[in-house]
Nucleic acid binder design. Sequence first.
RNA 1: GUGGGUGUAGCUCAGUUGGUUAGAGCGCAGGAUUGUGGCUCCUGAGGCCGAGGGUUCGACCCCCUUUACUCACCCCA
Length: 422
Amino acid sequence: MKKNQIKTVKGFNEVLPPESFRWRLVEDKFRDLLEGYGFAELRLALLEPTELFARSIGGETDIVEKEMYTFSDRSDRSLTLRPEGTASVVRAFNQYSLGKINEINKLYYVGPMFRYERPQKGRYRQFHQLGAEVFGEESFFQDAETLLMLAQLFHTLSVEGVVLHLNSLGCELCRPTFRDQLKSFLLERQTSLCSDCQRRMQENPLRALDCKNPSCREAVVDAPQINQSLCDDCRQHFSGLCTLLDNAELDYQVNPKLVRGLDYYTRTTFEFLAGGLGAQNAVAAGGRYDRLVAELGGKMTPAFGFAIGFERLMMLAGDKLAPLSSPFVALVPLGEEALRLLFPLYMELNRSAKVATLNFQQKSLKSQLKKADRDGVKYTLIVGPDELAQGVAICRNMQTKEQTQLSFDKLGEALRELYHEY
RNA sequence: GUGGGUGUAGCUCAGUUGGUUAGAGCGCAGGAUUGUGGCUCCUGAGGCCGAGGGUUCGACCCCCUUUACUCACCCCA
């Protein structure tokens, strides 16, 4: 690395070939799957008014408190690079009155997110999420559809060892009761809690449940559990979902201590956890947020969504993907006249797919064959001075080493025939 | 924000208790009797040894500073 070499900003994650091919493979699988279930893509702004995130994610969350890329533009507006996707999708849902166009809206997005954190394995400052949101459907069937769809995605990508953790956080009727219960429980044990938990106890006591500090864990072992205080509707919603998952034979663990780092969730919350990702073990997470649309100024609209960490998904799926496809034939000219002859054929063959390679540098036959071999082509088409004189090209099968002669006027046709056979 | 580890070729890494031209494997380029790939062999290109300062006759090596990367805490996808 040279002294004055300009480099990427710390923690900004870039994807180069051949990794970028694998990314697109996975992204395509995601799109195909989601679109099969009636989701449509939303391409949204990366930059939002800071207020959007403070109001949606919650002012007391770590994301908003210390992890956002926030700055002022030239007109002194406070802007923030989006740290997650849901807030923007909800904003767009309200802004474009999508709820008035369709009763149910199923939307997905793919793209970069930004959080100012210390980078480590599976965690970057610019990272990528695949996410989806459903608006207007309150039924637990929706929760089940989405969770089962995610499980299908992992299955399609041969990702194994991913475990679904599930919980219900209740609704605006039953959660406050639980919050109060938990708060007084925590107050009694205040001295054994870490400073963060003590501080957040008032605003957001639920966070103490998934604190990783050992003494906090100890202290909350016997904490009241949310599933004990769910109201009837929430209880039925959750058990309805569980039954559907059972029937579909999807394994899951109910984890009463699973709360999420974002404040907007209600009822169902979940995480898909995987080993092999270092300390960052959540590959996908999400849940239901029935009040957020209204809180951001829209009509009361139930919603359910999730986000997948793309880099984390790739760590799990990356090396199990199909190998990259090779071009079919290497055109091998010897001399400029042969190059001129093969060039139009090359342009013709690649018109709709990667079929042929052609080197413009007049390299030796040996080195062109070597390159063709490395590229994994099935055939090479050799044209040198001798062939030019006879009006034929040598077609060499790289596996069998068989060589046949093709006359110039039938080259394109003959190659297309071979290509279709293969 | 807090700790630990590591910075030597495009990649993965050796290296000398401080001593002359800093090495290997992979990769890349060329070659091994005329125009035929993989295996093998040969050759070559490519490094101011992360940066700055200090100690020394002399520093890739020792000391200080700094920076980047990395892992973990925290938090999250």
